[in-house]
């Protein structure tokens, strides 16, 4: 039986740890929602309540719609490859014995590196004239895009960097989920005549589905909040092609000091996050086995 806590215990164990959470998360959240309903510019001492104007302006603003579009593209195009590749790598690694740990170490290494530092490195790897990527593509006679300075490829460069950094993380999660599946299940499927493809499709994928859902939520939240790599690789450009909602928020709030509109963007990001999390919970009832 758990112990019924008295007031003094609640004070020490619950209230004190909650203080920073309240000061730096809960209260700011409430203030943000309020600010998004004002026209505050950070500098003026006064501001007015403007209702939903900020939101309505955003919805009619092409920059916002483009950013929303970019965000959705960026999120889908990072989350899905990260999960798929992480799963495939984990399945392959699971077959190895002595070398498994070493290879996991290599694949996970990008995750611990700072996004800022590695984005600087990648910005040079993408350099059209002296970067190694195009030099290698050139060797094979493949097209050599301008990557970061071409508005059609810039977002893909940012996506590549993001997947590169996150795939080892997903791989480790899947590896762990795989080792927890009882070996007997695969043997049973083998005995019953299931081929490799059938075993992966009918046993493996359903059994790691809770992990897939978990990664899906975490990676989606991360993707919606991606900033560092965009800030270094492209600063939202060229011509807004990599300006995600979060980057738009940064520009509005900390460059244009349009606090009301900026916070409205973050509230929208919050709503999108909550909606996606909620949606995946609903879908999980259908597809995820617990």
């Amino acid at each position: 039986m758990d112990k019924q806590a008295n007031f003094k215990q609640l004070f020490v164990f619950v209230l004190i740890p909650l203080i920073p959470l309240v000061i730096f998360w809960i209260i700011p959240l409430i203030i943000s929602v309020w600010l998004s309903l004002t026209n505050w510019d950070y500098i003026s001492p006064t501001y007015e309540y403007v209702g939903l104007d900020n939101y309505l302006n955003l919805i009619n603003n092409d920059a916002f719609l483009d950013a929303l579009n970019n965000t959705l593209l960026f999120t889908v195009a990072t989350v899905i490859p990260t999960i798929v590749l992480g799963f495939v790598f984990a399945v392959m690694l699971n077959q190895l014995r002595k070398t498994k740990g070493f290879l996991q170490g290599l694949m996970f290494a990008p995750w611990i590196t700072p996004m800022v530092g590695m984005s600087i490195v990648w910005s040079w790897m993408f350099n059209p004239s002296v970067g190694p990527i195009n030099q290698v593509l050139g060797l094979f006679g493949l097209p050599e895009p301008n990557w970061l300075s071409d508005s059609s490829t810039a977002i893909w460069a940012v996506i590549i960097v993001t997947v590169w950094k996150g795939v080892g993380w997903a791989m480790l999660f899947f590896s762990d989920a795989l080792t927890k599946i009882p070996k007997g299940l695969f043997e049973a499927a083998d005995v019953e005549g299931a081929g490799l493809g059938q075993r992966i499709r009918m046993i493996l994928i359903p059994l790691v589905s809770p992990m897939t859902l978990f990664l899906f939520i975490i990676l989606t939240l991360d993707a919606l909040q991606a900033y560092d790599q965009i800030s270094i690789l492209t600063q939202g450009g060229p011509s807004g092609s990599t300006r995600t909602l979060l980057y738009l928020y940064y520009e509005m709030t900390f460059q244009q000091f349009n606090i009301g509109a900026g916070t409205a963007v973050t509230v929208l990001i919050l709503i999108i996050s909550a909606f996606l999390a909620f949606l995946s919970m609903i879908l999980s009832k259908k597809f995820v086995f617990y």
């Binding site: 959470l21 000061i23 730096f24 909040q225 940064y250 916070t263 973050t266 919050l270 999390a277």
Partner: peptide, 20 residues
Amino acid sequence: IILATYMLPAATTYVPSYII
């Protein structure tokens, strides 16, 4: 509630936290 705050984009809190 704590679980829900994990979904909160940190950016939502930046301006007020900055003031605080």
